[in-house]
Structure formats: C-alpha cells, structure tokens
Amino acid sequence: MSLKAFHIFFISVSTLLAIWFGVWGLRSYFNRAENSLILVLAIMSFIVAGVLIVYGIKVFQKLKTL
C-alpha cells in the first residue's frame, strides 16, 4: 500500500472517529449531564468530520495526479 492509499484510509478512519465522538459527546451531555465543554467539543467534532470529508475528496483528486 502506498502513502497515498494509507493517507486516504487514515482520513476515512479519522472521519468516522470524529462522527462517533460527536455522537458520544451529545449523548454524554444529554444523558449524563456532562459539562457544556463536552457539548462544544461534540459540535466541533462534527465540524471537523465535515472538514475531513471535504479534505479527503480534494486530496484524493490531487494525489491521483502525483
């Protein structure tokens, strides 16, 4: 496996983690009454997941030309 392929795989796994962490944060905030920092982190995590998806698509197209 090349660095290109491994990077795409890594970004995919990171995106899944970001989404999962967002869900975990929301559930912790509403079910376990965690402090509001967890809610902020959860929202930021969903934003990071979105950024990673956009980045993943762009870098996939860019790395294909290398």
């Binding site: 496996m1 090349s2 660095l3 491994f6 890594f10 796994v13 983690l17 962490f21 975990w24």
Partner: peptide
C-alpha cells in the same frame, strides 16, 4: 520520506484507536 510517512501514519492510526478505547 514515503516510508517515514507510512510509519507516521501508522503511529497516528494507533492513537485513533487508543483515544476512544481509553478515554471514551
């Protein structure tokens, strides 16, 4: 550099699994 990058990605990937396992 590609080989060094593969190692770096592996180490980062280990953390991606460690973080939810230990912290969450």
């Amino acid at each position: 550099i590609e080989v060094a990058g593969l190692y770096w990605h592996f180490v980062d990937l280990v953390w991606i699994f460690l973080f939810p396992t230990l912290y969450l």
